[in-house]
Amino acid sequence: MKFLVCISNVPDTTTKIAFTPDNKEFNKAGVQFVINPWDEYALTRAIELKEAAGSGTVTVLNVGQADTEPNIRKALAIGADDAIRVDAVPQDAYFVAEQIAAIAKEGAYDVILMGKESIDYNGFQVHGMVGEMLGIPTIAPAQKLDMAGNTATLEREIEGGKEIVQVNTPFVASCQQPMCEPRIPNMRGIMTARTKPLKVVPAVGEPARTTVAEFALPPKKQGVKLIDAENAGELIHLLRSEAKVI
């Protein structure tokens, strides 16, 4: 079984978000980048399934410039076998999906996994686009994934419940908790990651279909209005008369 795990390079979850003075770009200064937390579920589950089967490979794929390589190496340290970096700025979901679809097709991958969305763009788009480009099913978001031979059984979260879906390879799934407990690299992993293959390839396909014209921060909160705990019921009156939400 050949697994392709797509990872995105995103600002650490605790980052205070700021933009360049013209509001055209995210301000990367002093920001630590991590593997997108949802992609960690995809990566760990692929490694677990490969280990359970006793054979197979896990290839990690990133669309990004050279500055994403530390996180690609981290994914290798967690247990991926090899990596591919498409050397391009990930312009929009469509552009990224084109890169993934091209590599998935060329490498004849059986299972294409990624997180349900990135915590920076929050698109929830790439997995569906890749599935459509390749003409294969996409299960998004998947909270459980088991494999028996070429058949996968997945739990797909829907509003208020879940669907149990069975598909044959090849397929795309976007992952979220509680699929697995994401692994962290150990020392041996970190040492071996240095020598694992990382191939850099150029981008293909058509240009992006959407562009970000400007970023904006949400309006600042007015500040909290504190109510005395002794008189807690007053809160309910304020929620009705002032905030008008009940």
Binding site: A93, Y94, A97, N122, G123, F124, Q125, V126, H127, G128, M129, G131, E132, M133, T138, A140, P141, R156, E157, I158, E159, R209, T210
Partner: peptide, 24 residues
């Protein structure tokens, strides 16, 4: 809707109809 159904269908449709897509 930007739901698990709407967004999943939207992304497939955008490829099929050659449309530009914005979620959320």
């Amino acid at each position: 809707a930007n739901s698990n159904i709407g967004a999943a269908v939207g992304s497939r449709l955008s490829v099929r109809l050659k449309a530009s897509l914005a979620t959320n």
